[in-house]
Computed example of a mutant assay.
Amino acid sequence: MRTRLLAATLTALAAVSLAACSSSGSSSGKATAAAGSPTTAAATPSDASTPGSTGSTGSTASTSGTAGTPGTPAPSATGTADGATGAPAPGTDGSAPAKPAPPADAGLPAKPDADVTGKVVAALKAIDPAIVGDKPDQVVEQARKQCQSMYQFPKDKAKLIELADQHFTSPDHPQGFGPDTAAKINDALRATLCPPPR
């Protein structure tokens, strides 16, 4: 009975000396030495028989560890939030998702059959026979390219006139047939070959 009482007293004394250690290092060192020297044998059984002493010391350490690092979870939580925000879902940052680039042949009509080819050639010859010359197949290919330009720039008349002057040339008109003829070419192609605008 006395041994347990002595062990409890030593445990309380050890706890007080540990608490005093934070305020005064030298005095707590002396108190710990004084408390530990007379009854070393008694301290050993108390540690073995009363796990509460170790538990109290362990709880003090765990409490101090918890109190010493209250901010540790907060940065990790913030890091998680930042990580989640670092990879925003589409549309959360206000920008629309990028549209895929149209294919290279977008707006390019299929090669026309003989009937459509005849209509295209006739319409261009009606504007100026020099547009077709003696190369109707080549003119039809240029007409298909002009249709693709109309698909790409449906409302830019000036651009389409400029492109028609580049597509349709002849030995006598190496720079094209001029803006008036180019506009007529565009109208003829819309009526015969180019798909209607969407």
Rank of each mutant, 00 (worst) to 15 (best):
P103S: 13
T181C: 12
R4H: 09
P195Y: 02
P88N: 14
L10G: 11
S53F: 10
R198Y: 01
A158Y: 15
G178H: 15
G65N: 13
D165S: 11
L163Y: 10
L163A: 03
T57L: 12
T32V: 12
G36K: 04
T11A: 13
S46F: 13
P154T: 08
H173S: 15
A19Q: 09
S17W: 13
P197G: 06
A158R: 15
S23T: 10
A19I: 10
Q166N: 03
T54A: 11
I185D: 11
C147M: 10
T39F: 15
G52L: 05
K135D: 12
D105W: 05
P174C: 05
S64G: 09
G176E: 10
P51K: 03
S23L: 10
S53K: 05
S56Q: 06
P174M: 04
S149F: 01
Q166P: 01
S64A: 08
D134A: 05
G65Q: 13
P109H: 08
V140R: 01
L13I: 00
S95M: 15
K99E: 14
I127C: 12
A31I: 09
G71E: 01
F168Y: 05
E141C: 00
A122V: 01
P51F: 00
G29S: 08
A15P: 05
K119Y: 03
D172S: 11
A42V: 14
N186Y: 01
Q148W: 00
A89I: 01
D172A: 09
P97W: 09
T78A: 09
G94L: 11
F153D: 07
G25E: 09
A114P: 04
G94N: 14
A106T: 10
L10M: 07
S26R: 07
L124F: 02
A20V: 14
A15T: 12
A104H: 00
G94D: 13
R190P: 01
A126P: 07
R198K: 02
A96D: 14
A74H: 03
D115S: 06
T60L: 05
S62Y: 02
A123R: 00
G65E: 12
P51V: 06
P102Y: 09
V140Q: 01
P197A: 06
